[in-house]
């Protein structure tokens, strides 16, 4: 980075802080976990969807949760993002207990997610979707919006600008920025969803089957993107994935769920060889 570029960046950062809500960055001790899940359990009526899972997400890491259909992966995700309140157990994020906290507050604290069945706002453009993602960073209220004060105007402009940057970062072509989300191809919709999640500047990004419906080439690109995001944006990624190639390729640690219970955990290669995992996926041998 040349000195002028650095000056540029710090100038932009100053402008950012001026217009958008300042974000207090909680610094963790090196090695301290980003998120700590203790004995998380979710019971629906008589069905225990997730049972007693203890799980740690380190800083700056990519970890995966895998398991057969109906293993409770998405329920687990929904607990982490506040959509479900755990029946038992505790979730600690950035050193704070966030068990049962509302989803929008958890998002504001720095957890963002994508959905298994894409949930973009269909009649909004790609850019507008990413602008909604920046909701927590904006300040404009009712009066400011009606009067459209210079501050609100600058904020809108800045949010639009950042939206474009993020869309470019996830590899969207400029020509699709103003396309409605429903017009986009499946792969592009996935990308916009990731961009929308990134817009809240998360410390932890949860991706729910991001490569579903992608061809091998697109999957490969996405793996690259995940690594890039981890390194450049200094965040951790928790991945739910069916595509074993992606999981083995990108994850530092893999956790396997089956019937809501954690049956294995460890390095990808070790997990793959685990007889319990093979059994869960392929059935009992012999």
């Amino acid at each position: 980075m040349s000195p002028s570029e650095a000056a540029d960046q710090s100038a932009r950062k100053a402008k950012d802080e001026d217009v958008l809500k300042p974000r207090k960055r909680v610094e963790l001790a090196p090695g301290a976990p980003l998120m700590d899940i203790e004995n998380a359990t979710k019971i629906f009526g008589g069905l225990t969807a997730v049972s007693d899972i203890t799980f740690t997400i380190p800083q700056n890491a990519i970890v995966s949760v895998i398991g057969p259909n109906g293993a409770g992966k998405t329920t687990f995700f929904n607990m982490l993002t506040g959509l479900y309140k755990p029946s038992m157990g505790r979730i600690v994020f950035l050193g704070k207990d966030v068990t049962g906290t509302r989803p929008d507050i958890i998002t504001r604290m720095g957890v963002a997610r994508t959905f298994q069945n894409i949930r973009l706002f269909g009649t909004m453009t790609a850019l507008e979707n990413v602008m909604v993602g920046q909701h927590t960073r904006m300040r404009a209220g009712v009066w400011g919006s009606i009067l459209r004060t210079p501050r609100v105007r600058r904020e809108e402009e800045r949010v639009r600008e950042i939206g474009r940057e993020i869309l470019a970062e996830v590899g969207m072509p400029k020509s699709s920025f103003d396309q409605l989300a429903i017009n986009l191809s499946y792969g592009d919709q996935r990308r916009v969803e990731i961009a929308r999640a990134l817009a809240s500047e998360p410390r932890l990004l949860l991706l729910d089957e991001p490569t579903a419906g992608m061809n091998p080439n697109e999957s490969h690109q996405l793996t690259g993107l995940m690594r890039k995001l981890r390194d450049e944006r200094d965040l951790s990624i928790l991945l739910i994935e069916h595509d074993m190639k992606v999981v083995m390729d990108v994850s530092e640690r893999v956790t396997v769920l089956d019937h809501g219970i954690k049956i294995a955990e460890g390095e990808p290669t070790a997990v793959r060889a685990d007889p319990a995992v093979v059994e869960a996926y392929l059935g009992k041998q012999g």
């Binding site: 993002t81 506040g82 959509l83 509302r102 989803p103 929008d104 507050i105 998002t107 504001r108 963002a112 997610r113 959905f115 949930r119 973009l120 706002f121 269909g122 009649t123 909004m124 909604v132 993602g133 909701h135 927590t136 929308r196 999640a197 817009a199 809240s200």
Partner: peptide, 13 residues
Amino acid sequence: EDEVAAASMGVPL
């Protein structure tokens, strides 16, 4: 359009 997605994007319902 989608309450769940909106809440997950930080929109306080």
